[in-house]
Nucleic acid binder design. Structure first.
Ligand SMILES: [Zn+2]
Ligand SMILES: [Zn+2]
Ligand SMILES: [Zn+2]
Ligand SMILES: [Zn+2]
Lengths: 130, 130
DNA sequence: AATAAAAACGCAACATAGTTGCAAAATATT
DNA sequence: AATATTTTGCAACTATGTTGCGTTTTTATT
């Protein structure tokens, strides 16, 4: 399932995601985008991006979906073995360059992976020490 | 924050969790428990269990919380480095014995970890091959 | 056993994230 | 320009989880 049409809304969302150094929730996208776009539209758009392998998402511990462009995962679209860090102080969720060794699980069929570490990010930790 | 009082409801929930080989959601607990317990009560109960280090939870990719007793994590209550497997066929989420090497992240303060692999579990994969 | 304090519970109302159906608008194709 | 298909907006809805508050249960004290 690939993207078939170019729209202003899609362009804007992709541009915002390229310019943002961390993951974004649907609400954040709706807020920060210069164009007014309905949340349902953003949900369905992201669904298409994920299906096309352009975007992946990580579910934070409180159950919200955070979306990011697929940059380090050119070949394996589904098995994202990089780590995500959720900061409980500033609320951001980041894609980290650090990767995890995915173990072999005989008998299981892996489709997707989500590695999440929760804590205080470097910025917030630095502020705390001042 | 430790448990201070024993109640029928808490006993039943712990017993159910001990007897169940996979994680449980709050709704599943409310359904399967022989005693009628309000969902708010179960939520608060699990919150206490988690704070006491008796229980941990994993958030599935669709944002639901799945709870399990802490068995393999006697010492480090928060950093659960075992893997969780979410089956998209039967919906179950399991604690697997397989563990992940948690990388060192300089500058970050880790509090909690959630490692999730999504796919088809051994049981459902076997059924598919018949 | 009666009393009192604290913890746990139930209920209703609420908050939020995400979904669905359908009609309208935008895009690509002829 | 006409047509077919994709994408969008809206409103209503579902589901998970939370909050406030009054009541009940548990436990400790008298
Ligand atoms: Zn932070
Ligand atoms: Zn990522
Ligand atoms: Zn299964
Ligand atoms: Zn577990």
């Amino acid at each position: 399932m690939a993207l078939t049409r170019n729209t202003k809304a899609q362009e804007e969302v992709l541009k915002l995601m390229q310019e943002t150094p961390h993951t974004l929730t649907v609400d954040e996208i709706c807020e920060k985008i210069p164009l007014q776009v309905n949340k349902t539209t953003v949900y369905r758009m992201l669904e298409r991006f994920v299906a096309a392998g352009k975007v992946h998402f990580i579910t934070s511990s409180d159950g919200k979906a955070h979306y990011a462009l697929c940059t380090s995962c050119k070949h394996q679209h589904t098995l994202h073995n990089h780590i995500h860090f959720q900061c409980t102080a500033c609320g951001t969720v980041d894609c980290l360059p650090d990767k995890v060794e995915i173990p072999v699980l005989p008998g299981y069929q892996m489709k997707e992976t989500q590695f999440l570490i929760i804590g205080i990010c470097t910025k917030c930790a630095a502020v705390g020490k001042e």
